[in-house]
Amino acid sequence: MLYQDTVESEILVHKPWFIASVFAVVLAVFLALNLTGTTMGELMRPVIGDPLESGLYGRFAIAFVIAIVFCLNLVMIGFVPLKVQIGIVWLEMLILFLVFVKTLNLNLPFIWKNLPFLITQGIVTTLYVSAISLVFSSLIGIVAAVAKLSSNGFAYGIASFYTSFFRGLPLLMQIYLIYLGLPQLGIVMDAVPSGILALSLCIGAYMTEIFRAGIQSIDRGQWEASRSLGFGFGLTMRRIILPQALPVIIPPMGNSFISMLKDSSLVSVLGVWELTFLARTLGQATFNHMEMLIAVAIIYWILSICLELIQSRIERYYARSKVR
């Protein structure tokens, strides 16, 4: 959370000028949108008569009602405590999302029918490809970060070339290069190992920079104290520097892992049966594209939320030495 001043500030959503301008903007937007042909128009039928015949009056009435509801909502939210505010906003956004999904007129039975297969095949494949890449990319990250910080020109050269190359190429390109290029050198790999290799190398390059920054953020005095007690390099790194660097490293690391979870969808171009691949193939055959895409999108979202929760749990664990 940002720094909280002790000065009590006035609540923005209770200022008349603010509410008035929000009202005007919402009114203008919905006037321009013309919702007479939608569910909104049907709901307003008692007031405006046949929505399609109501013309400008109907448009105005609908926009007016929406603007009133929106502003009332804002003012009400201003009265409740922070935690409730967050909950209400989340709930409302979710409802809006569901309304949006609803308007797509999805074939729900088709989703339910395919969901078990999406979970047993798709999620499992996505998760294990991501998890293995996660482990490898972290290992690559630590080693390359140390190499990049070392005074060894050879190690530095290799590590900086590696990060430059793999951060500079699109991941899709790397996947193709590894899957199609390596066999020309006589190394033939299956789709899944190629995908894992490409993901590990790419995310590993980002992890390198994250670890390097984390290690460098630790005060020089920690190294000196540790070395003056007689700890060697490995011991200092493992027991003193990395444990302190982790709280700095974990937020960007969580970021990388969440983006990797989603980048694993690129492996679908190799024909690996993970979520995105299944979504396309299952949907294509029966022209239920949108059903599968929405279903998989929500699954990716849930998985990301799980990763976020794990990240915040770890952050809390490492914050324990900062208590006063």
Binding site: G221, A225, R227, S228, L229, G230, I240, Q244
Partner: peptide, 20 residues
Amino acid sequence: AEVRKNVGMVFQHFNLFPHM
């Protein structure tokens, strides 16, 4: 390393390990 084992050092800024 052998020398450092036998030489204690106290710093201006303590340099205690904050995570322990």
